[in-house]
Design a protein around this nucleic acid. Structure first.
Lengths: 338, 338
DNA sequence: GTGAAAGCGCTAACAT
DNA sequence: ATGTTAGCGCTTTCAC
């Protein structure tokens, strides 16, 4: 494993010149720079990051904290796409990611050991006090996909703004004469469920439609629950004529159920799916959908954190990226109203 | 951020004494050690890992390489459980994990920069030459879940041994008088598909049963494909009376399809699922299954790599952990033979 | 049992 | 344009 010193010897210069040349600083003749760069290539030289970190007081690593409660993170397209976003931004800005799964102790330790320059906490469980401790200790930190309440003590966060897109989606259904609209939500405590239910109520009230609690069931976000709950909704004496699901997995389960019953979309049932990934993009008919920009949420989180690490300034406490509503072929006029 | 020096001052000793005390080395009086440890706690001291790495020539970090082709890694229970295994072993042995997703250049760079002491490559695509380059450069490296051919040039790997468990499973079905047995495989190029098909042929031949290619379809490993292919199998003029699926997702899709058609398990169809996770563990009836010990495969990979990093000795080139076959209630006598 | 000093590989301020 | 030097925080000889 070659060092700067060997290059210096071969180039017949001091090693500080080599350092300058390799770091693109001025004060080196072009000829010498080329010679050194060439030599570095030949010797298969790479700078030792520990040595560099020691003097720079920066390691160029971001800690990705996956709380225990989020082990399922990996299995959800939602979270895996957030990770992709974080990862691509980190790479682009020259940072590495350190994976911290199931940390039993304080989330601050990797920072104290100077293994990371800051952390991104994946998860929105605001009962995990350790997330707030980070902010209190002034450790560079972004929570994603954020919290419901963004009180002053909260860390920075990035998230998606789902109100407007959902408002459009529900209004679209009402415009198609649907009156019995179901919305399969996620966990009862999730930010997203709270948010979605709020829009649902707003739109229904606005149009003087009845709000039935059984039309907005909570779920565990899974394919299976999507399948099960859709079945339950369709088995009601007065089944909904339109259905929205709150994430990819639920949507997939719902579509399976509908297919299983040989119901036609949108003739028998209008469906709007929410998607973070593209696993539903090939569905026939093309789906009217709400696209949640999670890759963007992830990359925004990384960008925000890096900004803070490098400048010490928080670019706003919360960064919300709007979801997009797109009409395609899975929604149609309510058959009962035709 | 406090250093060893501050502790030394407060304790009125030199900083080498502090280092000894904190690292549990002998040559420090018990009284002094306690005083120093106490002081460290009060000052919220943590050793700077870069400084330590610089002298130790070890960083205590393992690189987790997720090739581009494995982005779906995160969404598959199979892979996410491997990650859990790797992660828990790494933690236990005091190593951190660095996530390297979608690396465009050589996989060797993080090692050359001394950011990691070795790498685990997740994936079994033997068309990725960069995996073999690692081994050639003598970089500590384990591939998981391994390759089909383990020729001398291959890196170390850990994997699951599925022959025996599948042999038992298929023999179990034959014993229940099934003659038309379907096996939904994974990708055509996957190690697992090759392996499974081999057992399938062996067992069928052994019992003089006809091998029909349409009973062993390839898939993309997904829930959707499990659903679709099961439908296709059941729609055949001579549908199978027993079905095995090669992973969690396919199994889930298959069960959805079977439920969708209101077929009874095992009266109408015997089913054996393959599972790495516990997402199917609550199914009714309880499923006869092949458990693939992927968490173990992951932790074995990490253990193997760490062993190699610390001792320089390869603990065998391939480490295969046997899968387990368990009979429960989802398999029964072939109704046509009753 | 404890201290002094060298050195890990690098950057950066200060000389020349 | 290039060299010299100090120092980042730590471990580890080698003295005493």
């Amino acid at each position: 494993m070659s060092t700067i010193l060997e290059i210096a010897k071969l180039a017949n210069v001091s090693y500080s010149t080599v350092s300058r040349a390799l770091n693109g600083q001025k004060g080196v003749s072009e000829a010498m720079r080329e010679k050194i760069v060439q030599l570095a290539k030949e010797l298969d030289y790479y700078p030792n990051s520990s040595a560099r970190a020691l003097v720079a007081k920066r390691v160029g690593v971001i800690g990705l904290i996956i709380p225990r409660t989020c082990e399922y993170t990996f299995t959800s397209p939602y979270y895996s796409h957030i990770l992709l976003g974080i990862s691509s931004m980190a790479t682009q800005r020259g940072y590495q990611l350190m994976l911290i799964i199931n940390e039993k102790n304080s989330y601050a330790i990797p920072y104290h050991r100077r293994q990371v320059d800051g952390v991104i906490v994946v998860g929105n469980h605001y009962d995990d006090q350790r997330i707030f401790d980070l902010a209190k200790q002034n450790i560079p930190c972004v929570a994603v996909p954020g919290f419901v309440k963004d009180s002053p003590g909260n860390p920075m966060s990035t998230t998606s703004d789902n109100y407007e897109a959902n408002y459009q989606a529900l209004t679209h259904l009402v415009g198609l004469k649907h009156r019995r609209i179901a919305y399969i939500l996620g966990h009862r405590n999730s930010k997203y469920s709270v948010e979605r239910l709020e829009v649902y109520r707003d739109v229904m009230n606005e149009h003087g439609l009845e709000i039935r609690e059984e039309y907005t069931p909570y779920s565990d976000f899974s394919v299976t629950d999507g399948f099960r709950l859709t079945g339950k909704l369709l088995d009601m004496p007065e089944p909904p004529t339109a259905l929205i699901c709150t994430n990819d997995s639920l949507s997939m389960g719902a579509l399976n159920q509908i297919k299983a019953r040989s119901l036609r979309i949108p003739q028998d049932l209008s469906v709007i799916v929410t998607c973070a990934s593209d696993i539903l993009s090939l569905h026939e008919p093309p789906l009217t959908h709400i696209h949640v920009p999670v890759v963007g949420v992830g990359s925004a989180a990384a960008a925000m954190l890096i900004e803070f690490i490098e400048t010490g300034e928080a670019p706003g406490e919360v960064h919300a990226i709007p979801a997009q509503f797109t009409v395609r072929k899975s929604t149609g006029i309510n058959p009962e109203a035709a």
